[in-house]
């Protein structure tokens, strides 16, 4: 038990904070603690969770990526165009096209980072500008509204009418999100590749001495994030029922904040899928709750910012200082 607490300190702390917020909101509003609202939360958080678990893989491998959100916009636009050419298509075809395009864009980053030894933040800020600039240039900022029918139709996987007559629904994005989460979890915790990614992020020199293929690590990490970004892009297009070139602009920093809030470390070697999801959920539960409480939508962004700032400040004052009984003889490495 104590070991579990020590190795999952961030996740437990987040869970505790979320629990406190949930209890508070259940008393403060009568809408919050309902199945409908919970499902709603999942539906709206899906895109960000897919982004976040993708980014997690890059963070674990010791990199950072600024370009993934605009890459998702590029993928969205290209996929919609390609689907227009081939005419029709379906979810499987759409996901394969979007995933493949995403991998390709991610590999551009990996190629720049590994091939020319460009630091990931420099490389991805550059590709951020390239992706977004070219997208806006070639599209002229024009949105696509006539998407294939299957992409704009809501797919309800589970529904139930509640006592008050509202409907609680789980939609397709949640299923896609669950698959992405499971796949990422399996990759990083159950495969040798995943463990090599952790080791590479933790101690690159040590990993090199073990004969880990450094180039492969970069391509796997950024390729995986690319794939997740591509999928998230398609799902966002489905959710919004349209493809707007700059819809995801700026999303990268929100996702980064959520992922790091969930315990992923800038610099590599640390982070979990669970933490990532909790990080995203903390932000969306807070927004959702404030919304239900009738707080002005302009105010709750500010409150979310303040909560993240406080959380980061507190988590750096170290959980061990707040909970002294957990204190271990920790030697700086």
């Amino acid at each position: 038990m104590r070991r579990f607490v020590r190795s999952h300190a961030t996740e437990l702390a987040l869970l505790a904070v979320i629990a406190v917020i949930c209890v508070f909101l259940s008393f403060a509003t009568d809408r919050f603690f309902t199945l409908g609202n919970a499902f709603d939360l999942l539906n709206t958080s899906s895109v960000n969770i897919i982004f976040a678990v993708g980014l997690l893989v890059v963070l674990i491998a010791g990199g950072i990526d600024i370009s993934f959100a605009v890459a998702a916009s590029v993928v969205q636009y290209l996929t919609a165009t390609v689907l227009g050419w081939v005419g029709g298509g379906n979810w499987i075809v759409g996901l394969i096209i979007a995933g493949a395009l995403g991998v390709a864009l991610g590999c551009i980053n990996a190629f720049l980072i590994h091939g020319f030894r460009i630091i990931s933040i420099v490389a991805t800020i550059s590709t951020f500008n390239i992706f977004f600039g070219l997208l806006m240039f070639f599209t002229g900022g024009v949105s696509i509204y006539n998407l294939p029918d299957w992409l704009t139709t809501r797919v309800v996987l589970f529904e139930r009418e509640m006592a008050d007559g509202t409907w609680a629904e789980i939609t397709l994005p949640v299923l896609i999100m669950a698959i992405c989460v499971f796949a990422t979890w399996a990759l990083i915790t159950r495969t040798t590749t995943g463990r090599q990614l952790y080791a590479f992020g933790d101690n690159p020199e040590g990993a090199r001495r073990f004969g880990i293929n450094i180039g492969a690590m970069q391509f796997i990490a950024f390729g995986w994030l690319g794939m997740m970004a591509g999928i998230a892009g398609l799902v966002q297009g489905h959710y919004a029922q349209e493809v707007v070139p700059n819809a995801l602009y700026g999303r990268e920093l929100d996702v980064l904040a959520a992922a790091v809030l969930g315990g992923a470390r800038l610099g590599g070697g640390k982070g979990s899928v669970l933490g990532c999801i909790l990080g995203v959920l903390l932000v969306s539960i807070t927004q959702n709750g404030l919304n239900l409480m009738g707080v002005s939508p302009f105010a709750f962004k500010m409150i979310v910012g303040a909560i993240i700032l406080a959380a980061i400040t507190l988590s750096n004052t170290s959980i061990e200082r707040l909970l002294p009984f957990l204190k271990s003889r920790r030697v700086p490495s």
Binding site: L253, A257, V260, L266, F298, A299, V304, A306, I312
Partner: peptide, 27 residues
Amino acid sequence: VIAYTKAHPILVSLSMMIFLRGLGEFL
């Protein structure tokens, strides 16, 4: 915050950014 908690500047300034954006939009 950066000097006393040794939190990563990217995170501190990122959350400050989110906060200021919210504050500005609120006001």
